[in-house]
Amino acid sequence: MYSKPIRLEDLHIENWPNLILWAAPIMFLLVFIEWGISAYQKKDTYNTKDFFAASTIGLVNVGISALIKVATFGSALFFYNISPFTIPVTWWSFILCFIAIDFARYWAHRIAHEQRFWWATHITHHNSSKYNLSVSFRLGWTQHIKVIFFFPVMFMGFNPFVFFICHQIAVLYQFWIHTEYIKKLPKPIEFIFTTPSHHRVHHGSDAHYLDKNYGSTFIIWDRMFGTFMPEAERPTYGITKPVTSYSPIYLVFHEWNDIFKDLRKANSFKEAWKILFDKPGAEIIANREKAESEKKAASDSLIREELLSLEVQEK
Rank of each mutant, 00 (worst) to 15 (best):
K43S: 05
K274L: 14
Y2M: 09
L30F: 13
K212G: 01
F191T: 01
K290D: 08
R200K: 07
A76H: 05
V135R: 07
N61C: 09
W221F: 09
W119F: 12
R116K: 14
I284A: 10
A71Y: 15
D211R: 01
N287R: 13
P235D: 04
S197A: 15
F149I: 01
S134Y: 07
K270P: 04
F260W: 12
Y209T: 06
L30D: 03
Q41I: 03
E190P: 04
F151V: 12
H198D: 05
M156T: 07
H178I: 02
L307Y: 13
R138W: 07
H125A: 10
Q174P: 01
S65K: 11
L276A: 05
F150A: 09
E114V: 10
I275K: 05
T227Q: 01
W35A: 11
R116M: 11
K261W: 08
G140Q: 10
Q143A: 15
T86I: 10
W221L: 01
E289W: 05
E14S: 09
F228C: 00
S38P: 03
I220F: 12
E190T: 04
F164C: 07
K4D: 04
T179Y: 07
W256T: 08
E14N: 03
A100S: 13
D300G: 06
F225G: 01
F94Y: 12
Q143P: 02
C97T: 06
E14P: 00
F51N: 06
S299E: 15
A71D: 03
L210M: 11
T56S: 15
F228K: 00
I57G: 04
W273L: 15
M27Y: 10
D258T: 08
I259Y: 08
S301Y: 14
F98V: 05
V153H: 01
K241D: 06
L30A: 05
D211S: 09
G281D: 02
F175R: 05
I82A: 04
K184R: 15
T217F: 15
P235A: 01
V153K: 06
Y80K: 00
F225Y: 02
I37S: 00
D10K: 08
K279A: 14
P280N: 04
P152K: 08
L172N: 00
W22C: 11
V252D: 14
V162F: 10
L263H: 02
I284L: 12
G58L: 07
I13M: 13
S128T: 10
A71N: 07
A170N: 13
S205F: 02
K49S: 07
A120F: 12
I37C: 08
E283R: 11
P25T: 02
H203I: 01
K315I: 14
R264W: 10
